[in-house]
Nucleic acid binder design. Sequence first.
DNA 1: TAGACTATTTTTAGATA
DNA 2: ATATCTAAAAATAGTCT
Lengths: 223, 223
Amino acid sequence: MSSSDQSQSKKNPSRRKVNMTKMENESNLQVTFSKRRVGLFKKASELCTLTGSEAAVVVFSPGNKAHSFGHPDVHTVANKLLAPNSSHGNNELKYLAEVERQIEAERARGEEIERMRKACEKEKWFPSGDAMEGLSYQQLEHLKGAVVDFGKNLETQVGRRDVGPGAGGGFPFGAGARQDFAGGVSSEHAAGFQYNTVIPYDQGAGEEDMSQDFNAGYGRGHF
Amino acid sequence: MSSSDQSQSKKNPSRRKVNMTKMENESNLQVTFSKRRVGLFKKASELCTLTGSEAAVVVFSPGNKAHSFGHPDVHTVANKLLAPNSSHGNNELKYLAEVERQIEAERARGEEIERMRKACEKEKWFPSGDAMEGLSYQQLEHLKGAVVDFGKNLETQVGRRDVGPGAGGGFPFGAGARQDFAGGVSSEHAAGFQYNTVIPYDQGAGEEDMSQDFNAGYGRGHF
DNA sequence: TAGACTATTTTTAGATA
DNA sequence: ATATCTAAAAATAGTCT
């Protein structure tokens, strides 16, 4: 208390508007990263709490440490993004289920062939050449194709949401998993920032418009 | 200028401290989500610009629309998280390379068997029962096991960074891909929020301490 | 549905311990 | 590197347009 101070420069006179460029001072940069990372995670947490939404945040520090926030957890949110058309989206599980189905089919077929083989062994006879051929190689190739598609799909889904309702290859299993994008847009900020919005499933592109300007102060481009 | 107003309730008297629970009013909730999502992305963008770091944010709105922000893009950041020990981290490609290697091996084995089968056809002889058996089923099972591990690994990597240097199963291919985590901790907030920090590669756990209290106002737990 | 307004709250840069 | 402190800057809930 006591008398008035000099009214300015009491403690720190040099607190001015933030310079939106990379900070020069290395140690200040580190401190700012820590503070702002905490702030970012807090904002994400508040968003989830307040609106009941789900969010995941991944940040790599200048020193390349990975930090993540997720509600309910990063895994769940990432999976939702990977499988926008599955209500509880887990593409790994869906994929595995399909693989198991194929394997079961192959097992049945293998048994069939095994039966034939046994017949051959007993009766010195073997079916005309093609039943067994390609059983391993061709089927594995098929499976490999599925995996390749899976990988491509991963890249497509995660990295570039520019696929439209029918643009992408979709999942390799046409019948089982439908790729029902209602719509989606993607735009990349000139400086390398990327914003996306996509309407995963249901709620057709009717009422919602999916592109909005995003130049309220920190960039150009739209979602 | 002019006289003083009523000092309070000039425009909106009802702006008080934020209630950190899910909002009741549906339309207000939607508006708040939009505003806060923009704010969150802006914070992420500023963090990247200011400190030269990389970040990815994924948010699902209450209406289940997916929104994402990424710098340089979501794909890149997600891959870094998935493959912290690979310089250009793309585990999908590494996995596919391994699958192709296995398929090549199977193809060779398939040719071997095919040769035997032809011999059987010609000479009415067939190897003693086990060469062909399980060629399709067993090998596919093997491949399936690899895919299962892959899926588990995905889950482990993305969702729960509690695996230590040797705790997790790592990738199913011991030789090719080493799991060189320098260290990592994970903690889950009681209400279902998850915070993580991990030191991906190099920079051993020496100087950095990787757990910090995270109760500065919005939760408990540590990174 | 999407902006503008604005009183308040919240975040934060820099300094300091 | 972490915790406080503080003034200034930024975000934002509710309201109105």
